[in-house]
Each structure stands twice: as structure tokens, then as C-alpha cells.
Design a protein around this nucleic acid. Structure first.
Length: 630
RNA sequence: GCCGGUGUAGCUCAGUUGGUAGAGCAGCUGACUUGUAAUCAGCAGGUCGGAGGUUCGAGUCCCCUCGCCGGCUCCA
């Protein structure tokens, strides 16, 4: 039984003090207009702490947030005990956990997490109540100032209002809006995960603090489950799988410049094939523009002014050149190579453009963040009247690839005019209207990011959700009013006069390299048949069947199947195991029986034994596999 | 770039307080001729990321450097 009193003296009690119920009471209090300062901690004087209090877990997001936030405080408390010199920054709850930014007298490492964690458990066992108090701003400032908490003082200085709520947890005091769990014993199922650097206020000009990440849940099962998911994500890491499956490599000789191996190239080329097929069907043409172009072009396009830090430069015969970070200027030269009529519009010009961008060394990450990658780019030149339909058409390509081909869930975000935008406000308005209407008329739900557009135009972004719930931005549709102006692009309208075309930039997969990384993780390396580097592996029971195996292999290759033969003198079990580990979709076993009857024993990677088949039956089986390239 | 961690054989890793570099897998050779997730034996494989320093002696300690890993938006 938990009893407490609101600040106006009204008495409440909760039979089963689950965090959820406490939150309900909190809402109730809010509803009746009581002064609400927290869940129950604001009532410390009247509040009887039930020492057996065990919150049944918050199955609400708020409850989980609250628990994690309190666990962050608990961690800070433990840190203070172990490192009395430590000073504290902020400690919020985040998706899947919490962190606290701390300035330690001496750097700490991951090994120290164990120590901090055990101290947290001690503090938790002591069931120290979290007590809310209120101070005036000046008192609060003095209070934290006396404790040498300069970071807290700085934060207080930036706060508005007159009253500051603080939470006392034994010797540890933090200012905090709350609410919190009643006492430290409520934080039971937590784990500290990692330690990292983080700039104060996220600004690299500021000092760097030590950030400790942790997670917390309401039940042991949920915590374990979460930790298992982290393990699962690790096991799917495309960098690990890329090595194990021999798809690609990255070498110290080229940081951020991936090398694709034969098996990786199969996947890459299949992506390109389906991309080309689909774009051809949808009225696209394809071009290819050079990687190195005169600096003057980049001056004209504005990249020199806006993108220089991310570009690589070179010289040809002592004249300055740049390596393209984007494909648009090159594409525009193709457009401008001839006169265009409105009758040609819309022109949909695709390019698998290999671009180089200098990313900061610390930002590199496998195939996900690289310094050279292939954009599945396209530029669409059209009249203002055509914008909306073109956007809808692009959205349908996105739908086709994400949903139909790869089975991803995805969501859409619309980013509108930023403060430092360039160009005619009327055009901006038209463009945003087009994007919005295209979204609404197709019944697409979207998130709005006001002010998040590029300086040259608004955009729609597509975010994929992989099978373990992580999201990746891939596709984008951007309207551009700057480049047509800068390059004085024109077309001849029905009136015989020159007009300015509208230019759209768009990608579907974003970067082929990154998309491949996403696919590796999404499939955990087990590519579907149409993408699998090796679709079927031939396993002979012993070397005496080599002739039949070779014959079958060349027949399958002629039929367009990607096969490999395991010629090693190993037992079948070993060969099966290795093929399974290489995640090959089909294993074809050849032994005495098969050689005699001219058949093959088929084993599906997932379903297991499919029995014996003739060659024709086998080809039928392969043809029945999903394949978007028809 | 910055903070922390890390770098030993193709891969995954071990290497005590500084004292002659190890294992498993993969590879090669041989034996076995194998029926649905690892047959056995042998051989070979490393300037311990690179450069400097301390020391009689450095994979181990110090400094520099490079790569890699985690993180650097998510408001007390």
C-alpha cells in the first residue's frame, strides 16, 4: 500500500503500486488541477515508503522513461560515491536506455563500468527515497555552485522561471523536472553498456565529457530480451558478415573506400540489374558522367562554396580539378548539351554515379558511411505543372523497391524551407505544396520536419525499417531551384519562348554500398535466392562421382544458376555444415543413388531435405523462387 | 576531427610481475572414399599495425603515428 498526499493536502492511496498506476494517479491529479510535481515523490513527508515496494513494470512508454531516468540518477549517485570529484552534466532517458554525461577527475574505461554497476546495486538495495524539493533559482545556483557543480550551474543560468525542483537521493542531489520512482530500490533490472565521449551540449567547441550508456527495464525478462537483441544485432553486423561471407573488405590503404569481392559484386550487380530494369520500364534513360571535372564547374554549381570541406581535389596539367561529390553538375552539362522542348518533358535521367565525399575519420562505418559510393541518382527536368505527378511516380518506385522487392517497412518525412534558404519564396511555396499534395493525395502518412529542408529546396526522405526495428534513410526526393538558375537552364515552351525547367534530384536506394550493408544486416547474410552470390552448392558424397557432378554443374550454369562445387575430400556432413554457414540457399547432394538415376538430392537451407529431383524438376524449383528481374 | 578503447598467423583469439612468440579454424600434403552441421595425421604460416625511446633484454613499459571499434541531435 502506498499512501501520499498532494500539495493541497488531498490524500491518495494506491493498492498495487505499479509505476503505471502511479502514473495514472499522477494524471488524475493533473486532471483535478492539483499542483503536480512528480509521481509520488513530491509528497515525501506524508509518503510512506513501503520497503517491499516493487514496481511491476511499466508497460507504458512514460513508465519506462521514468524508470530509466531514475536509473540514470542512480548511476550518478553510485559514481559520486566512487568518484567524489566527479561533476555531472545531463542524464536523460533515451530510446532503449539512458546515459549520463560526467566529468571524471581521471578518465575511466569500460572496465570501470562493472564497479559502477555493483555500486549502483548497493545503492539500490539501500532503497534510498528520492525526495523532491523546490528552491528558488538563486538558492539553487548557490547550492550547486557550493558543490562545485559548474555544469549544473551553467544549466541553471540558462533556465527560465523562478523555482527549481531538485531531487535528493541521499547524498546525491540533482535538479530535475521529475518525476521519479519513489526510491532507489525500484531500479532493479539495469545494465551499463558502454562509455564514450560526448561534447557538452553536443557542440564540438565545448569540452568533452565522459558519457556512460546504460539500459533499464521493468523485468528481468525484458532486460535479458533487450540484451539478446543487442547480441543479435552484433551477430548481424554487416562488417562481420561481409568478412565471413567474403563479400567485401576495407583496408588501411583506403579508409572508407570499400573493396568488393566477387561474391559482393554478385549482390551489387543484381541490385543494379533490378534497378535498371525497373527504371527503364518507368521511362528513365541513363547517363554516365566523369568523376573528375574542372573546378570552374564546381564554382558555378555552388559546391565550391557550400561543400568544399567534403570534396577531394586534384590537378591536371597544373589546372585545378575536383572529384565529384555529387552528380548533378555533370548531369546538367548533358542537359545543356542540346536545346530542349516542353514536348520532351518530363526528362528522367538516371545515373549510377560514383561519388567521393570526405567524411570525418571518426564517422566511417563499414559500408554504411564511406568516402566513395554509388548513388542511384536521377534528375528529372519538368515543368512546374508536372512536379506533383513526378513526385507521385517516384514515390511509387520507392514503394516498389522497399515493399515489393525487399519487404521493408518504411516511413516518410517531409522537410520544409530552412531559415537560410535561397531563391524565390513563391517557388518554395509551390514546391512545398506539390510535395505535400503528392503525399496527401496518395494517402501517404508522413512526419513533418519544418525548417529541415536543403537550402536549395524542400525534400521528402524515405526511412527504411529493418527486421530488427532500426531505421535507415535511403530514398530522397529534393526539389532544386538553384541549379537551373545557376546554369541558366532552359527549355522552349509551347509559346515558343524560353522557360526555366524545374529540377528534381532523387535516389531510391540512396547508396548502393549502404543499401547492400542494410540488406546484409536485414537478411543476416542469408540472401534470398535471386540475390545469393552462390545459389546452389553441389556436394558429392565421395570423389568417385566427380564426373556426374561436373556435368550437372555445367548444365546448371548454362541454365543461369550460380553454382559452386565442393570438391574437397571431406565427409558430407562437413560440406553441409560449410554450405549452411555460407548461407547458400540450396545444397545439391550427389552420391551413388543420384549418379545411377540421373537425379540429385535437394536440400533447402531452411526447410531441409526436399527429396530427390530430376534436372528439370530442379530448374522448375529454381524458377519458382522469387525474382524481381524478369 | 574529438573522447575512450583496441591492433599478435588468412580468420577467431591466448600470451603471467619485461626473459627465445602459442592454440583452434582455414591452407597445403598424405591416409580414409565418405549419405545430410566439423575424419585422422603431418607440414607450413607472424619484423606482434608502423616509427622512436627506456632497458642487458620489449608483444608486454613510455612517446608519436596509422587503422579499427564505441560514441559525439535526442533538452535539468
Amino acid at each position: 500500500m502506498v499512501l501520499f498526499t498532494s500539495t493541497e493536502g488531498k490524500r491518495y492511496e494506491a493498492e498495487k503500486a505499479t509505476v503505471r498506476e502511479l502514473l495514472e494517479v499522477w494524471r488524475l491529479k493533473k486532471a483535478i488541477g492539483a499542483k503536480v510535481n512528480g509521481v509520488i515523490v513530491d509528497c515525501d513527508k506524508e509518503f510512506t515508503v513501503d520497503t517491499e515496494f516493487t514496481p511491476v513494470m511499466p508497460d507504458t512508454e512514460e513508465g519506462l522513461d521514468l524508470l530509466r531516468h531514475s536509473t540514470a540518477h542512480l548511476m550518478a549517485h553510485a559514481i559520486l560515491r566512487l568518484y567524489p570529484e566527479a561533476k555531472f552534466g545531463i542524464g536523460p532517458s533515451i530510446k532503449d536506455g539512458f546515459y549520463y554525461d560526467v566529468r571524471f577527475p581521471n578518465p575511466i574505461s569500460e572496465d570501470d563500468l562493472q564497479k559502477i554497476e555493483s555500486e549502483m546495486r548497493k545503492v539500490a538495495q539501500e532503497k534510498i527515497p528520492l525526495v523532491r524539493e523546490e528552491l528558488s533559482m538563486s538558492d539553487a545556483k548557490e547550492y550547486f555552485s557550493n558543490r562545485g557543480e559548474d555544469l549544473k550551474v551553467e544549466m541553471i543560468e540558462n533556465l527560465e522561471g523562478e523555482i527549481l525542483s531538485i531531487y535528493k537521493e541521499g547524498d546525491f542531489v540533482d535538479f530535475c523536472r521529475g518525476p521519479h520512482v519513489p526510491h532507489t530500490g525500484c531500479c532493479k533490472f539495469f545494465k551499463l553498456l558502454s562509455v564514450a565521449g560526448a561534447y557538452w551540449h553536443g557542440d564540438e567547441k565545448n569540452e568533452m565529457l565522459t558519457r556512460i550508456y546504460g539500459t533499464a527495464f521493468g523485468t528481468e525478462d525484458e532486460l535479458k530480451d533487450h540484451l539478446r537483441r543487442l547480441e543479435e544485432a552484433k551477430a548481424r553486423d554487416h562488417r562481420k558478415l561481409g568478412k565471413e561471407l567474403d563479400l567485401f573488405s576495407i583496408h588501411p590503404e583506403g579508409p572508407g573506400f570499400p573493396f568488393f569481392h566477387p561474391k559482393g559484386m554478385v549482390v551489387m550487380n543484381k541490385l543494379i540489374e533490378v534497378w535498371r530494369n525497373e527504371h527503364t520500364k518507368r521511362g528513365y534513360v541513363e547517363i554516365k558522367t566523369p568523376m573528375i571535372l574542372d573546378r570552374a564547374l564546381w564554382l558555378q554549381s555552388g559546391h565550391w562554396d557550400h561543400y568544399k570541406e567534403n570534396m577531394y581535389f586534384t590537378e591536371i596539367d597544373e589546372a585545378p580539378f575536383a572529384i565529384k561529390p555529387m552528380n548533378c553538375p555533370g548531369g546538367i552539362l548533358v542537359y545543356k548539351n542540346s536545346i530542349h522542348s516542353y514536348r520532351e518533358f518530363p526528362i528522367r535521367m538516371g545515373e549510377l554515379g560514383f561519388v567521393h565525399r570526405h567524411e570525418r575519420s571518426g564517422a566511417l562505418h563499414g559500408l554504411m558511411r564511406v568516402r566513395a559510393f554509388t548513388q542511384d541518382d536521377a534528375h528529372i527536368y519538368c515543368t512546374p505543372e508536372q512536379i506533383k505527378d513526378e513526385i507521385k511516380a517516384i514515390m511509387d518506385i520507392d514503394r516498389y523497391f522497399y515493399q515489393e522487392v525487399f519487404g521493408f517497412k518504411y516511413h516518410v518525412e517531409l522537410s520544409t524551407r530552412p531559415e537560410d534558404s535561397m531563391g524565390d519564396p513563391e517557388l518554395w511555396e509551390l514546391a512545398e505544396k506539390c510535395l505535400k499534395e503528392a503525399l496527401e493525395e496518395t494517402g501517404t502518412e508522413y512526419r513533418l520536419n519544418p525548417g529541415d529542408g536543403a537550402f536549395y529546396g524542400p525534400k521528402i526522405d524515405f526511412h527504411l525499417e529493418d527486421c530488427i526495428g532500426r531505421t535507415w534513410q535511403c530514398g530522397t526526393i529534393q526539389l532544386d531551384f538553384q541549379l537551373p538558375e545557376k546554369f541558366d537552364m532552359t527549355y522552349i515552351g509551347a509559346d515558343g519562348a524560353e522557360h526555366r525547367p524545374v529540377m528534381l534530384h532523387r535516389t531510391i536506394l540512396g547508396s548502393l554500398e549502404r543499401f547492400m550493408g542494410i540488406l546484409i544486416e536485414n537478411y543476416a547474410g542469408a540472401f534470398p535466392y535471386w540475390l545469393a552470390p552462390v545459389q546452389a552448392k553441389l556436394l558429392q558424397v565421395s570423389s568417385q562421382f566427380e564426373e556426374y557432378t561436373q556435368e550437372l554443374n555445367s548444365k546448371l550454369r548454362l541454365a543461369g544458376t550460380r553454382t559452386e562445387v565442393d570438391y574437397r575430400d571431406e565427409k558430407l556432413g562437413k560440406k553441409i555444415r560449410d554450405a549452411q554457414l555460407q548461407k547458400v540457399p540450396f545444397m545439391l547432394v550427389i552420391g551413388q543413388k543420384e549418379a545411377e538415376t540421373g537425379t540429385v538430392a535437394v536440400r533447402d537451407k531452411v526447410k531441409g531435405d526436399l527429396g530427390s529431383m530430376t534436372f528439370d524438376e530442379l530448374i522448375e524449383l529454381f524458377k519458382s523462387q522469387y525474382n524481381p528481374i524478369s
